[in-house]
Design a protein around this nucleic acid. Structure first.
Length: 224
DNA sequence: GCGACAG
DNA sequence: ATCTTGTCGC
């Protein structure tokens, strides 16, 4: 049976109206901040989602989980959340510690219909989320200065939908956008606060390390 | 019709 | 995303 994109599109438009783009609670001090990422294996037939729990403000890894779920949809630009959310939901339920804030690898509202994977999952899990993408899906932005820390707005159809941040020198910028239950200002601020000298903020960096079993994660495992 | 296009 | 080694540069 073929994929009914028109149906998924209608769902996105419906879900998008439920996304909260302001802070759930002003000036909150999170205890745990999480990161989520999804990879694929077995010729792309299985989605492998990883989530990590870090303490704030130390940003030390205290828990990680990995879930494998059969893929039900191919990658179609603009419909990524339907492909990755099932796996993200699976790892989410495995966590013994639920975070106060979750960073997701991908767009939040910086999406043609305002429902990137960070927003879609935040809505489903009812948790504040921030979308941190490594490349652009839609929108335009002015040239970015080479200095780390420089930021410019991401616009789409006359609206400000996110921020383009040079998190590290000589690295391509990050595309930050509201996921759910957070303001655009806070989304950018928390991303900056979670930066520790690498291109990716710690939550997303660790989630990627776990999902891909990178050396940094292997070393952490050995020390446990 | 042509180019763009998260992971 | 994934397939994959070395290599140039800070």
């Amino acid at each position: 049976m073929s994929i009914d994109l028109a149906e998924l599109k209608a769902l996105q438009q419906q879900y998008a109206t439920k996304v909260i783009q302001y802070d759930r609670n002003e000036a909150f001090s999170p205890r745990y901040i999480a990161g989520g990422d999804v990879g694929f294996e077995a010729q792309g037939t299985v989605a492998r989602a990883a989530m990590v729990i870090l303490t704030w403000p130390e940003l030390e890894l205290v828990e990680y989980q990995v879930a494998r779920v059969p893929v039900t949809l191919p990658y179609i630009p603009g419909y990524l959340s339907f492909r990755e959310c099932p796996a993200l939901e699976a790892v989410w339920q495995m966590l013994t510690i639920k975070p106060d804030l979750l960073f997701i690898d991908g767009q939040g509202v910086a999406h043609p219909r305002g429902l990137g994977v960070a927003s879609h999952f935040g809505l489903f899990a009812d948790v504040p989320t921030i979308g941190v993408a490594k490349s652009r899906l839609c929108g335009e932005y002015d040239a970015l200065s080479p200095e780390p820390g420089s930021v410019v707005g991401l616009r789409y159809q006359g609206q400000l939908i996110g921020s383009v941040l040079r998190s590290k020198v000589r690295c391509n910028p990050l595309f930050i956008s509201v996921g759910h239950q957070i303001s655009a200002t806070s989304a950018l601020a928390w991303t900056q606060r979670c930066l520790r000298g690498y291109r990716l903020p710690e939550p997303t960096r660790w989630a990627d390390a776990v999902a891909s079993n990178r050396p940094s994660f292997q070393r952490w495992l050995a020390r446990q």
